[in-house]
Nucleic acid binder design. Structure first.
Lengths: 128, 128
DNA sequence: AGTCAAGTTCTACGGAACGTAGAAAAGTTG
DNA sequence: CAACTTTTCTACGTTCCGTAGAACTTGACT
């Protein structure tokens, strides 16, 4: 139950954008951001979505454990449970986890990483 | 279009099992293996699937680019396009690739790897 | 050559996930 | 209370996947 649809991902992107800032977004915030011409690398933007559409998606994301909703405040506030980086790293572990030969997979994985990333990894591994 | 269903994965497991041996399997081979009491860690085994079911799955896997089929020989022969390890590593790259901050993801990823795997990684990174 | 059995293709149905959203209920504000 | 906003409920269409029957193709055997 890890994969996201296109719209779900778009919404997560919005939430992730404000994750550091501990900015819990209201629905209105999200709609505003999504309509905003952000310079537009996004891809899903451009359409005017119905309010309920976004709410439905938020509910589904909540059920999946990716979004937390503050039900206390009146316009509810939504936020990503974990940062995009944490979530992605977790996903990578999920993918890796299902393999019988983890080390062989890692070997191939490392084989196609950029040099700068390899450097980062060396540094990180040193500290363990 | 990367995710597999339960049966699709089971079939891939069979194909991957013989990938090294360059053994291109016929449908019959696969059915035999799937029914075989392999010691049974599998999970999907036990049911008697219709022949056409497996064929359908093979076709879908072919469309997804995971399986190659030799149409020349009469009982067609099926084989995984890449090894399980390669495929998994590729998946990991796909997951990682979608992140804006790859290095941050890697940092978190490394943070939760077993010590023996960390050791493996150090070795691999040294050789680059 | 004619029949039989195995292999393959086509078509299809039911269930789940997802995009999408209307109708209605609940709550807020003036 | 009336008007507006937010949330909940329900639902429909599409695509993916498990599952498989019907029918066509082809090699084998008599």
């Amino acid at each position: 139950m890890a994969s996201l649809g296109e719209l779900e991902r778009a919404v997560m992107d919005l939430l992730w954008a404000g994750h550091e800032a501990a900015t819990a977004n209201t629905l209105r915030d999200l709609l505003a951001q999504s309509t905003e011409a952000t310079g537009g690398a996004a891809g899903h933007e451009g359409k005017e979505l119905a309010v309920t559409t976004v709410l439905t998606v938020l509910s589904r994301l909540e059920k999946k454990g990716l979004v937390e909703r503050e039900r206390g405040t009146r316009p509810h506030r939504y936020q990503a449970v974990s940062s995009r980086e944490d979530h992605t790293a977790e996903l990578m572990h999920e993918v890796l986890g299902s393999a019988p030969d983890r080390e062989a997979v890692l070997a191939r994985f490392i084989g196609s990483v950029t040099e700068s990333e390899a450097e980062t990894l060396r540094k990180l591994l040193g500290h363990i």
